[in-house]
Amino acid sequence: MKIGLYFGTFNPIHIGHLIIANHMAEHSDLDQIWMVVTPHNPHKQKNTLLDDYHRLHMVHLATEDFPKIKPSDIEFKLPQPNYTINTLVHLQEKHPNYEFSLIMGDDNLNSLHKWKNYEAILQHHHIYVYPRLNSGELDEQFVNHPKIHRIGAPVVELSSTFIRESIKNNKNIIPMLPHKVWEYVEHNLFYKK
Results as ranks from 00 to 15, higher is better:
1 M>A: 12
4 G>D: 11
5 L>G: 13
5 L>S: 15
8 G>M: 12
9 T>W: 10
10 F>P: 06
15 I>R: 14
19 I>K: 15
20 I>Q: 02
22 N>R: 14
23 H>N: 14
27 H>C: 08
27 H>Q: 14
28 S>I: 11
32 Q>S: 12
33 I>M: 07
34 W>M: 06
35 M>P: 00
41 N>Y: 12
41 N>M: 09
45 Q>P: 06
45 Q>V: 15
46 K>C: 05
50 L>E: 00
51 D>I: 10
53 Y>N: 10
53 Y>Q: 11
55 R>N: 01
55 R>I: 03
56 L>A: 06
56 L>Q: 04
58 M>P: 04
59 V>R: 05
60 H>F: 14
62 A>Y: 12
63 T>Q: 01
68 K>G: 03
68 K>M: 10
70 K>G: 01
73 D>F: 05
73 D>R: 03
76 F>H: 02
78 L>D: 01
80 Q>M: 09
82 N>T: 11
86 N>M: 05
87 T>S: 00
90 H>M: 07
92 Q>P: 02
94 K>H: 10
96 P>G: 06
97 N>D: 15
99 E>D: 12
100 F>P: 01
100 F>W: 09
101 S>R: 04
102 L>I: 03
102 L>A: 04
103 I>L: 08
104 M>D: 05
104 M>E: 07
107 D>N: 10
110 N>D: 01
112 L>W: 02
113 H>E: 14
114 K>W: 08
116 K>A: 06
116 K>Q: 10
118 Y>R: 01
122 L>M: 12
123 Q>R: 13
127 I>E: 01
128 Y>C: 02
135 S>R: 03
136 G>T: 00
138 L>T: 09
138 L>H: 00
139 D>S: 09
140 E>Q: 15
142 F>T: 04
143 V>F: 07
148 I>E: 03
149 H>P: 04
149 H>S: 10
151 I>F: 08
152 G>E: 13
158 L>C: 08
159 S>I: 06
160 S>H: 03
161 T>K: 08
164 R>F: 00
166 S>D: 07
169 N>Q: 13
169 N>I: 04
169 N>V: 07
170 N>H: 12
178 P>S: 07
181 V>R: 03
185 V>T: 07
191 Y>K: 04
